[in-house]
Structure formats: structure tokens, C-alpha cells
Nucleic acid binder design. Structure first.
Lengths: 127, 127
DNA sequence: AGCAATAGTTACTTGAAAGTGAGTAATTGA
DNA sequence: TCAATTACTCACTTTCAAGTAACTATTGCT
């Protein structure tokens, strides 16, 4: 019973599913996708302002990976100063339901988790 | 429109939701939860064997955080050599639907994402 | 006496991710 | 002429998450 599952999870380990989930598990990626899901289209500096704590560098890196994955689209207007607009692609939008289910779960169970963490740390102090 | 959302996402930034999602986004945590969801109950070394590539240290760290969060339970049998069994708590089980939705999405859209990555890297070489 | 088994711990190292701060191109308006 | 705007890039430093490998306690077995 363990043996059969072994192969299965080894696959998850180094196969593409992992690399996809890594992207989803990324702090900034989740934020950008969620924000674009809410706001529709935003420019670079708007995203920067909305997130607030992200550095320009991390924002460009995050946007590039998401664009490479085909989750967001990048529209350049040939102006000066430049204007670049970001929005979710259909593929990116298709990720929203799964993400929001996760966020909902987090919101709903946060109190229980925090209580558990508190209780756990106190138990550790006593032992 | 951006301003109102700003507050909302700043909250997500440094508030507990983030810390909950961080756990979910963690590579080993996802694996352990998924495996325990499939296998029910496993001992330390069984988990170690099933995952295959995890170090003892990372396994203990992962198990401890998940236990602190109240997602898995740790049952100790006072024997020598020791016997410790891990399984999901109801809270941990309640996370499975959201997780599997995400995994299903990843499996379904992996081909599209990989194609996009390939096309993107080739485009970059040409430019 | 000494080895095997289990579930860890500890100390050390390393690599990658992230942050910092400055610089860039091109044009407009004061 | 010079600051301002926008969407970045680049070089450098720091941080910390993760890996490695050896060590621990406890008891039965040989």
C-alpha cells in the first residue's frame, strides 16, 4: 500500500506538477493574481502601489514568471513615458476559483489555527 | 478604486491569512498533507520512505509546524524503540478539498503552462 | 559487550531568494 | 535647460531556508 503510493509521490516530487504548484505557492504570485483578479487591469506602478511592500525588482521578476507561465498578459503602449498594462489571461482567470477556495478556507479556519499555535507554544514552554 | 483595495491587500500582506497561506504554499507541507490524506496514518519512517527525498530534519520541522497549526495529530506509543503515528486532524482533512482542487487545476493546465514557458523562452532568445 | 531499530536533535555549511540603491531611455512641460 | 515621469535593469549585499552528516536515548537481542 505504501509502495504503490511511493511512485506516485515521487512523480509529484520532480515532475511538472510541482513546478506549477511552486508558482501558486509563491507569496508575490498569489498576491498579483488575486489583485489582478479583483482590479482587472493595472499598470506597473499601480500594482506596485497596491501591494505596497514589494520592491520594483521583485515585481518585475514576479510579473515575468507569471507572463512566461501564460497566467497574465502584458500590453505595451508605445508612449513616452511608457505605459504597460497587466491583466489575467483566461488561463490565469481559470485559477481564481481554486485560489479563492483556498483563501476562503484560510479566512474561515484562521482562528482555529491561531488558537492551536498558541496552545502548542504554551505546551512547549511547560514541557 | 485602487485605494480601497489597497487597504484590503495590505491586510493580507502582514495579517494572519498570509501566514496560513504560507504554510499551504510550502513544498513539504503540501506533500505531507496530501500523503496523510491518502494513507490515513503513517509513522515517521514511513513518511520518510514515501517522500523519499526529504531529510529527517525537514520532516521533523514540517511535522512540527503542521502539528502546531493543528492540521495533523501526533500519537506517541511509549515503546522502545519508539513508535509515533501521524494522521490528519479534522481541520487538516477540511483542507483537502481546496488542495485537491488546486492539484487538479495544476494537472489539467500543466501542458498549457509548459507550452507557454517554452514559447516565452524562445521568444526571448530571438529578441 | 555491542549492535540494531526508531524518532528524532544538533551543529555546520551552502545556495538561492530577496532586498537596496542607483542608473537608464525617451519625451514633455516649466 | 532641467526636472519629472514610467517601467524597468544592474550590481551588490544580506538573509534565511534547506541540506548534510553525525550524534542521542532506550531496550531487546545475540
Amino acid at each position: 500500500m505504501i509502495k504503490e503510493n511511493l511512485k506516485k509521490f515521487e512523480l509529484i516530487e520532480d515532475c511538472p506538477v510541482r513546478s506549477v504548484l511552486d508558482r501558486v505557492g509563491d507569496k508575490w504570485s498569489i498576491l498579483v493574481i488575486t489583485i489582478l483578479g479583483e482590479c482587472g487591469t493595472l499598470r506597473f506602478n499601480e500594482l506596485n502601489a497596491v501591494i505596497g511592500t514589494i520592491s520594483q525588482k521583485m515585481l518585475t521578476v514576479t510579473l515575468k514568471t507569471l507572463e512566461a507561465d501564460g497566467l497574465i498578459s502584458r500590453k505595451i503602449y508605445p508612449q513616452v513615458p511608457p505605459r504597460v498594462e497587466y491583466s489575467l489571461t483566461p488561463l490565469g482567470e481559470s485559477l481564481l476559483p481554486a485560489m479563492s477556495l483556498l483563501v476562503d478556507w484560510a479566512l474561515k479556519n484562521m482562528p482555529a489555527i491561531q488558537a492551536s499555535r498558541k496552545e502548542y507554544s504554551q505546551r512547549k514552554v511547560l514541557v
